[in-house]
């Protein structure tokens, strides 16, 4: 049984066969044309029609027009910006911690297979514990506020970043290791000019997936352990039964997550192409 399933966190990569030098093709940017956004207009439109013709219960499913109005209200009151930036800031902190730890440990274990054999079982037992299951202990350890959120985000983002980096470092072509040995390359040079560049496409894929995971984690953390952020906002709106505000918050969560993923895809593409990989 393999302890770490390849591509466990990146179903997209499974489709493109990795080449012999351990490179992956950059994921295609799927939002290049405006027409692909059409369903994003059609579905709310049908929803609106459904509510207005009384097929859909407006109390449980406030129509898009009401959600839009709630969104404008929230933006005008300044709450939207405050909560969104609080969530984004938390993700950036947690994600940075996860990147440092995931890339560092992934490179280390990817090259030291003996150490990996001892450490991987530990990681693989911790990994299936959902971030939600960590919330109680995070509150006990860190109290309320930013710190439990940072911890939970870092935890959630760590695994995809680690797994992809580890896979990338492990699949470094043997011949490159031989070249480095042959020329007596010092370890720092090997890491800088061989290991890191060869692994960067994997690291970027891991970071993109990790950022997405981190974004879902911040909302989960804020639902229970924070007094600001988009997760806190929708929870608060729930207690006052402002359903359209709950949905407006969810919409913002989705849009920010989408923007983050798109940004990471762009970075991934830019960096991978600039490396002068085989075309």
């Amino acid at each position: 049984m393999s302890l770490l399933q390849a591509n466990a966190h990146s179903p997209e990569r499974g489709a493109a066969a990795p080449t012999d030098v351990g490179q992956t093709r950059p994921t295609t940017f799927p939002f290049a044309e405006a027409k692909y956004f059409l369903p994003l207009l059609v579905v709310p439109l049908l929803w609106e029609i459904g509510v207005r013709s009384a097929i859909i219960n407006a109390n449980l499913f406030p129509p898009p027009s009401a959600i839009g109005a709630a969104l404008i209200d929230l933006a005008r009151a300044g709450m939207l910006w405050r909560d969104a930036s609080a969530s984004i800031l938390r993700v950036l902190v947690g994600f940075s911690i996860a990147t440092l730890a995931g890339v560092g440990l992934g490179l280390l274990l990817g090259r030291l297979s003996l150490l990996a054999r001892y450490v991987l079982p530990l990681i693989e037992v911790i990994r299936p514990i959902s971030v939600i299951a960590w919330i109680p202990i995070a509150i006990l350890w860190f109290g309320l506020g930013d710190r439990p959120a940072w911890f939970l985000i870092a935890l959630g983002a760590f695994f995809p970043i680690f797994t992809n980096t580890y896979d990338g470092a492990r699949s470094l072509a043997d011949v490159y290791v031989r070249v480095a040995r042959c020329f007596g390359a010092p370890r720092a040079l090997f890491i800088r000019q061989v290991l890191l560049p060869a692994t960067v496409p994997h690291i970027l894929t891991g970071m993109r997936i990790g950022l997405g995971t981190g974004w879902t984690c911040v909302i989960a953390a804020e639902l229970v352990s924070a007094t600001s952020g988009l997760g806190y906002m929708i929870q608060l709106a729930r207690t006052t039964i402002e359903t359209e505000k709950v949905l407006a918050g969810m919409l913002v969560i989705g849009l920010i997550g989408f923007a983050m993923n798109s940004l990471m895809l762009l970075i991934e593409r830019r960096l991978t192409v600039r490396q002068g990989l085989p075309d």
């Binding site: 030098v21 020329f183 000019q193 990989l277």
Partner: peptide, 16 residues
């Protein structure tokens, strides 16, 4: 190394 330029590939030989 596909990610290094010609000059950097040659300089790699001087790494030690």
């Amino acid at each position: 190394f596909p990610w290094l330029t010609v000059a950097d590939n040659i300089a790699f030989g001087l790494g030690a």
